[in-house]
Amino acid sequence: MTSTDVGEILRVVKNVDFPAGKDELIQEAKRAGASEPAVKALRGIPPEQYGNRAEVARSVRLPADSDLGHSPAQRAEQAREGGKHGQSEQLRDVPKPPIQEELDRDRRA
């Protein structure tokens, strides 16, 4: 079974005139040559008006092992924290782990 990722979703809706509704997004994705999993993912978003591509990407359900590069701890934090209604759990904002913040500070110093 194939799946989609954030990159494909962003690519297939790049020519949409925002704000746009769910039906417009699906039609544009089909015109842009989206894969069936990408179209299916767009069919699964809430029927709202979306202001930009980022809002669309945050609303699409993706496999938990998608290409977002989150650590297991970050994924657990995303599961614990609430997000916008209809927002995919994997795309919720999540803070960096404390050790990563410390490593980033050390690199700047």
Score class of each variant (00 low, 15 high):
Thr2Ala: 15
Thr2Tyr: 13
Thr2Val: 14
Thr2Ile: 13
Ser3Thr: 10
Thr4Val: 13
Asp5Lys: 07
Glu8Gly: 04
Arg11Pro: 04
Asp17Lys: 07
Phe18Ile: 14
Phe18His: 09
Lys22Phe: 02
Asp23Ala: 14
Asp23Thr: 09
Ala29Arg: 00
Ala29Ser: 12
Lys30Glu: 15
Lys30Cys: 12
Lys30Val: 15
Arg31Cys: 01
Glu36Lys: 04
Lys40Glu: 12
Ala41Gly: 11
Leu42His: 11
Leu42Lys: 07
Gly44Val: 10
Pro47Met: 00
Gln49Lys: 03
Tyr50Pro: 06
Tyr50Lys: 00
Gly51His: 10
Ala54Trp: 09
Glu55Ala: 12
Ala57His: 08
Arg58Pro: 02
Ser59Ile: 00
Ser59Glu: 10
Val60Trp: 14
Arg61Pro: 14
Leu62Gly: 01
Pro63His: 13
Ser66Ala: 12
His70Phe: 10
Ser71Arg: 06
Ala73Thr: 00
Arg75Val: 15
Arg75Leu: 15
Ala76Pro: 02
Ala76Arg: 07
Gln78Asp: 08
Ala79Arg: 12
Ala79Thr: 02
Glu81Met: 07
Gly82Phe: 01
Lys84His: 13
Gln87Trp: 06
Gln90Arg: 05
Arg92Glu: 02
Val94Phe: 08
Glu101Ile: 05
Leu103His: 03
Arg105Pro: 01
Asp106Met: 11
Asp106Tyr: 09
Arg107Lys: 03
Arg108Gln: 10
Ala109Gly: 13
